[in-house]
Amino acid sequence: MDKETLRKLELLNQLSLTDAQKADVLGFFANREEELNILNAMNTENTERMVHVMPIMTVVREDVAAQPFSRDDLQKGAPETNQGYWCVPRVVE
């Protein structure tokens, strides 16, 4: 992990770190990269990935239209709304 890659990750994740935080994060990454050697020492060539620990079936249900929450309810916690719309800064100049 280098500073440039970290900057890309910040942009990708909509975060902005201070210089001190960046130094901390780089240290964290260095430790994790070192730890990765533990996993790399394990032969997983013939081992299948395990995404779910239990056999999970795809959940199916009747295709019935419903409106569990009203728009007003959904917007109760919104930072800013106007006439039923969520407000954000202008994105098209």
């Binding site: 992990m1 890659t5 970290l6 990750l9 910040e10 990708l12 994740n13 909509q14 975060l15 902005s16 770190l17 935080q21 901390d24 994060v25 964290f28 990454f29 994790r32 954000v88 800064p89």
Partner: peptide, 23 residues
Amino acid sequence: LYTNTRTEAFGELLKTVILYGSD
């Protein structure tokens, strides 16, 4: 809006874990 919201609201440990997971 996105960046400052997340930067101001998330703690340091969480930000680090987000970046690590993203990587």
